[in-house]
Design a protein around this nucleic acid. Structure first.
Lengths: 220, 220
DNA sequence: ACCTGAACACCGTTCAAGT
DNA sequence: ACCTGAACACCGTTCAAGT
């Protein structure tokens, strides 16, 4: 059922529709034909408002990231606020897995400064000396975006019909069956991989980074 | 000039040719038609050895990752060996930027266990208690892959004709011109972003993680 | 078993023509 | 200024037919 054309086309309406399509069908499912049908126009019409598919994906990612950052609470310790920003982005990637590729590839797009600002303020509050603000903040942001992206990819990787548990179990079993010498480490962590919780694992990374920052820049 | 068909087709020859095309023309440049022309066959022939484009990209990524890990030295402190593995992957991504998308998306493919093994052995040597081996190793691997991927994306983002310096300078200037209140942090790190070195920045992340591990699991 | 190459069902993007 | 929709130049993938 083609939706009736209530309002005229606009960049915002196009981006909103693109997000719906992406959430429902993934990046491969977003097509100018599908999108224009949903908007009750022709494919060419979209190009009046958006330069190309890449820009459309970028705009959709930005919208999702901005929405995620707005929920960020304005109080708590710097550590807690870093965790809050990180978890907000983690959940956003979880809800919209297609932004993962954009975040790790689209590199420092329009939405990224917001993330930098949100994280950087806590880095400053943590007592990191000014000359290391950029490095420290970037490291945190890179971890958050990179880890969230890889988590989303893992979640997507399951072939339809296979649950997360089945997939983890299969992979853990494969690891446990590796050669004893060449794989002396990997063999032993199969059951930890089977049992782990993605969110906890992600937060453990934040805690390692925060502990490292505290160790390198001890508060007075 | 179409190369003469010296040997018969094989998965290895196809993957090797794919890597050459990818290095020269990027992911968008890899086409079954281009590839088959280079191999002096028809596009259909490739499908006898490779299931589809995704599998081909995965195999190419694996080959590059395995080659990078083989250069890893077998001596040094655990910290230095973590740095060596990390830098090896960083450089591999730098030389073959197209693997970035694979590494952050292809999640735990065939090459990943090797990375886990290489990093995990050092985590073990660092004295991390066994019950935290999986989390700690995964955090390090996620940082390495995520940060390397984002660095590659940044390097690629420059439009042809723009140097890295020009791009960084333009971005730094944009940051410095942001509103004083809303962007009180981001405004101040423009010059650090202008001057930073990608490799050093990447290694700083490793050092923060190692410092965090040392703080959370103090050696006896 | 392995390769050929035409054909299929798509894509993103453009653009003359309309309003 | 904005929209239409046919057309262009591609894709990945399949498959009957060959060797």
């Amino acid at each position: 059922m083609a939706p009736r054309r209530s309002e005229s086309l606009s960049r915002e309406r196009i981006v909103a529709a693109a997000i719906e399509v992406l959430d429902a069908a993934g990046e491969g499912g977003l097509t100018f034909r599908v999108l224009s049908e949903r908007l009750a126009t022709g494919p060419g019409a979209i190009y009046w408002h958006v330069a190309n598919k890449g820009e459309l994906l970028g705009a959709a990612t930005d919208a999702v990231v901005l929405a995620a950052l707005e929920e960020e609470p304005a109080s708590g310790s710097p550590q807690d606020r870093v965790r809050a920003v990180a978890l907000g982005l983690f959940d956003a990637v979880d809800d919209h897995p297609w932004i993962a590729a954009q975040l790790s590839a689209g590199a420092w797009q329009a939405g990224t400064p917001r993330i930098v600002e949100a994280v950087g303020r806590q880095v400053r509050a943590l007592g990191v000396p000014q000359r290391d603000w950029f490095v420290t903040t970037t490291v945190l942001v890179q971890y958050v975006l990179g880890a969230a992206a890889q988590n989303a990819a893992n979640a997507q990787a399951a072939r339809p019909g296979t649950s997360r548990e089945e997939m983890l179990d299969a992979m853990a079993t494969r690891w446990e069956e590796l050669g004893p010498d060449e794989w002396s480490f990997t063999r032993t962590i199969g059951d930890q991989m089977r049992d782990h919780d993605d969110r906890e694992q992600f937060l453990a990374g934040i805690d390692i980074a925060l502990a490292g920052i505290a160790a390198l820049y001890p508060p007075p």
